[in-house]
């Protein structure tokens, strides 16, 4: 059963990824991207990483794609199509993509994956929360704080940009 669902999800991801990059209509590309991200969330659910799946749904599907669509709505016209890329460029891109895929496959198959001894199953939010804020081993307090400062900076920047209108 799980295997069947995995194949369905994987197929969805591959199919819509290809459609995302080949679509000429930018809003359609964004919608195909949405399906890719939804299917990815599905894979997380399949792996029982419920929290990550919900984060994927909120941040990527509900946040990033909405922002992309929003930006497109504000800028593009309905009959707006991306220009087709010339053949040399597409060939070059295909070559690069194949090289990248090869590198990743080589790395994945070359690495000897070992279990980390953690129990399989659902991680509850409590564990994630405490490991985010712990400073022991497997603690993520430093990245957490760094990202917090980054977000703060972005927020201050946004306020400054928004404020400039008022002074005019």
């Amino acid at each position: 059963m799980e295997r069947l669902i995995f194949y369905i999800l994987a197929l969805t991801i591959i199919l819509f990824s290809v459609m995302t990059v080949t679509s000429r209509n930018i809003l359609r590309a964004a919608i195909y991207l949405l399906f890719v991200l939804l299917a990815t969330a599905g894979i997380y659910f399949l792996l029982n990483y419920n929290f990550l799946a919900a984060v994927q749904l909120t941040v990527y599907s509900g946040g990033v794609v909405v922002l992309i669509v929003f930006a497109v709505l504000l800028t593009a016209k309905i009959d707006h199509k991306l220009e087709p890329v010339n053949k040399v460029k597409s060939a070059l891109t295909a070559l690069l993509a194949i090289i990248g895929l090869g590198a990743i496959l080589w790395a994945v198959f070359g690495y000897n994956f070992t279990g980390n001894g953690m129990a399989e199953g659902a991680y509850d939010v409590k564990a994630i929360g405490s490991s985010l804020l712990s400073y022991g081993q497997y603690g993520y307090v430093l990245p957490f704080e760094v990202i917090s400062i980054l977000l703060l900076a972005a927020m201050v920047g946004a306020i400054m940009i928004a404020k400039r209108y008022k002074n005019d």
């Binding site: 939804l38 929290f51 919900a54 909120t58 509900g62 909405v66 669509v69 309905i78 939010v125």
Partner: peptide, 25 residues
């Protein structure tokens, strides 16, 4: 599921895309 509340808010956040696309298309 163990994150039920989070899941509901996450799932319902996709709905706005339907409105955005429907309004544009």
């Amino acid at each position: 599921i163990n994150i039920g509340l989070f899941y509901i808010t996450a799932a319902s956040s996709i709905g706005v895309l339907g409105i955005l696309i429907g309004g544009w298309a």
